[in-house]
Design a protein around this nucleic acid. Sequence first.
DNA 1: ATAAAATAGTTGACAAAATCAACTATTTAT
DNA 2: ATAAATAGTTGATTTTGTCAACTATTTTAT
Lengths: 316, 316
Amino acid sequence: MTQEQEATMIANIRQFNRFYTMQLGLLQQHVFDSEYSLTEMRVIYEIHFNHQTTATGIREALNIDAGYLSRLLRNFEKKGLVIKHPLPEDGRSSYLQLTARGKKLMAQMNELSDMQIRQMLADLSVEQRRQVGHAMNKVRCLLKMPGGRPRLEDVEIRHGLQPGDIGDIIRVHGQVYAEEYQYDLRFEQYVTETLHEFLQTYNPAKDRVWLANCFGELAGMIAIIHKGRGRAQLRWFLIRPEFRGIGLGRALMQEAMDFCRAQRFREVYLLTTNQQQTAAGIYLKAGFVKTASTPEHLWGQDVYEERYELKMPTGS
Amino acid sequence: MTQEQEATMIANIRQFNRFYTMQLGLLQQHVFDSEYSLTEMRVIYEIHFNHQTTATGIREALNIDAGYLSRLLRNFEKKGLVIKHPLPEDGRSSYLQLTARGKKLMAQMNELSDMQIRQMLADLSVEQRRQVGHAMNKVRCLLKMPGGRPRLEDVEIRHGLQPGDIGDIIRVHGQVYAEEYQYDLRFEQYVTETLHEFLQTYNPAKDRVWLANCFGELAGMIAIIHKGRGRAQLRWFLIRPEFRGIGLGRALMQEAMDFCRAQRFREVYLLTTNQQQTAAGIYLKAGFVKTASTPEHLWGQDVYEERYELKMPTGS
DNA sequence: ATAAAATAGTTGACAAAATCAACTATTTAT
DNA sequence: ATAAATAGTTGATTTTGTCAACTATTTTAT
């Protein structure tokens, strides 16, 4: 990244920060015109969220003065929002817990916060709302954890082709293979061709394409195409690098294999190259066996085209 | 959107809000350990940003008490950060302006803010940083202005096919036409076919595809394909609905026409249907003339397929 | 085992940040 | 010309947050 690009990027983020500071309304010290200050509500939230936390836990999480917190807590106790349970193993500390009343307050605050959010989304279309949600999740996911790995729970797997899916499959193949193996435009063209060919005989009852979605983006995909006489081809198996190592490949393969079993296919095969090592591991784990390897010059690369086959267990 | 979907979306946004509140460090009352409080810095920023603003302007923008602000301003004046220029037309008010010293403080604060942002991005790859920036811009763009319209300045137009572009073109066509005209999968398949066909004879010297990018997303596209004997076809002209009405269509058409002139094409034609009214307006404006209209049943719709032609002015 | 150091939390004194209400000076509306 | 509204100021006060000294308990070092 050039110096200049970095500068504009930082300027953008700074603007986002300022904008979002306004948006959050963090300026008001009284949250939603309640009798509680922002700090007080943060303490309440912290107690609610981390059950069985101590004063020190809160102090560290929120970085507030110990004396100040002590007084806040005494006040909460007096008002019947919080209750202290002395720790048996340490006579100095106490667990903190919200009383029913404290929980009710939390719920009310969440209600108000939700209303604020609804207002913020009020002028937007359903699609725009979805986009806002996805973009925020994306930011959170990238900034939160070092390395910014999404979790498998964030990924939804569905099947059936929706508008845009065909293009998205091609796009992701083109981008990932270009980045990882320097395949050129010819590869994306080849994928386009294979999809075009597939669509001419696409039969939703016998063919199935699964798409893994995360934060509104295509994270990975797999497909099973029937080839007649109990045979099927596995195609377009790919996980975007950002989503690898979280078990998504296995999850998709599982879906595909379950489908093959349900369809009572006798044999499944697939074509790949010797370069796709990660995928090969998953193929072998699923029971595929390499049956052929022929040298080819494809998409500007010298590769071995490989064939994998899987005999499906028949009978019940 | 179902009730449940709305609930998870709101929960997501609430989580983002909490997360980003932490991220911003808005909890500290002293900005970057400086001697100035958050409120003070916001006042300074407001004066810097809205030149020639008055105390009331700031009061309204930041929603702070008039008396409090009055004292803050007197203090800034005493410290030589701000200077008041009495308004000639109103003896009660004064313009507020940052002195050189005040501006220097602003610059220092920006510097610190930039450092904070750099730290926040420190563990991320270049691509991840880009994604953070795009996602934030997207959020800002969607939430900021009613309707969430991006501006033409936010859009970059480039030409030449990068990895993923082919798929992206197909994807956007599939999604937009499905949403707007209920075209089904067959349409996306058709687009896939046209692109596949095009790629077989693609010659970067004579054919050109332009892509308009905004916040890392494809906003619109257009292409010119040479057909021999001084003729060319205009294809895949499409602007995503979110990016319409900002002059992007005209900008792309301009690029295409400039290229046609430079290539000295004598005639440009295109095929469309009677349903694409918005595009038709741009075709006519660019000098195209409708030369044919034949009823067809395409992609699950009864439409008229229309042909437009443009005779390019020849000679110098 | 025992003294010293560290930790958890409390308390008093105080400073900083924000609010409220009464006020002056000026402009606008009737 | 007068009343009402507006821009900003000031004093009194409350709320919020900080600092340092303190007690009670636990951990560490010798």
